[in-house]
């Protein structure tokens, strides 16, 4: 035993080497999320003439491992807002609880004007920007969908840096590369929205989910889809991709029967 009390009860440096005090975190800065752990992939959404469609698959990956296969990544906030989450699942759960407490506080008084999608987007943007400014980001990319203050379709995104933008169609993650071009083919601009029916929009988004399942290795064929209109939110969380056709693979080297 050593006569210095500082050394008591600690691993002996001569045996174990100096103790890594960053584990002890006395004066060091807090360790924040530096990378996501369990993640969800793309979220896709599109406006149509009287509402918005949003979809995300039900997979949460742990790196390349398909870890959880029934994860619901669309959250209904109230009768006119749905938020879709891509990125870290634990941060999504934190945001879910945050929205829960916000909703509870909103309903203390019998509110005539409930928070609409635009309000919620502004709120979430400020939360995300604050956390990135504290170097403690919430590792998510969110799509906020629903109706704005004038009951018009609303669709906008926020990412882990607090960057916000709005567009008639949006897709996060891999979907920004694969789904967005497909969506833009039908809905190139805000004017085109008025010509798209709910059925068309749903089919379009389902088509995107299929393409994403074909080509995004971190995706799956079970997904959630929500339609938000003035008559409320229709959220289905146990959908499966139908009419898959791998015929296109025939022509691709390495996929089909072609060997060389």
């Amino acid at each position: 035993m050593n006569h210095l009390p500082q050394a008591w009860g600690r691993p002996r440096d001569d045996v174990y080497g100096a103790y890594d005090h960053s584990h002890f975190q006395t004066q060091l800065p807090n360790q924040h999320t530096q990378s996501p752990i369990v993640t969800g992939t793309s979220v896709v959404a599109a406006k149509f003439k009287d509402g918005v469609v949003i979809a995300a698959d039900n997979l949460a990956s742990y790196g390349s491992l398909a870890r959880f296969t029934d994860v619901k990544r669309l959250r209904k906030f109230n009768d006119e807002v749905v938020v879709g989450f891509g990125g870290d699942v634990s941060d999504m759960q934190y945001l879910d609880r945050l929205l829960n407490s916000l909703d509870i506080r909103e309903n203390y008084s019998n509110n005539e004007n409930p928070l609409h999608a635009k309000n919620l987007h502004t709120y979430l943007a400020k939360v995300m920007y604050k956390r990135r400014s504290d170097f403690d980001p919430l590792w998510n990319h969110l799509l906020v969908t629903g109706l704005d203050g004038e009951k018009k379709p609303f669709l906008a995104s926020v990412d882990l840096l607090g960057t916000t933008f709005s567009s008639p169609t949006l897709a996060t993650g891999f979907g920004a590369h694969l789904a967005q071009p497909i969506l833009r083919r039908t809905i190139p601009d805000e004017d085109a929205v008025a010509n798209v029916s709910q059925e068309e929009a749903v089919k379009l988004v389902q088509e995107c989910m299929k393409v994403l399942f074909y080509r995004d290795a971190r995706s799956m064929d079970k997904y959630s889809i929500a339609v938000i209109t003035t008559s409320g939110v229709e959220l289905k969380q146990d959908e499966k991709l139908e009419n898959q056709s791998w015929a296109f693979a025939e022509r691709i080297r390495g996929y089909g029967t072609q060997v060389n």
């Binding site: 994860v71 999504m92 879910d96 609880r97």
Partner: peptide, 13 residues
């Protein structure tokens, strides 16, 4: 609630 309530923030069943 008489139902099996999910934990706040629970994402799976």
């Amino acid at each position: 609630s008489e139902a099996e309530l999910p934990v706040d923030g629970q994402v799976g069943s």
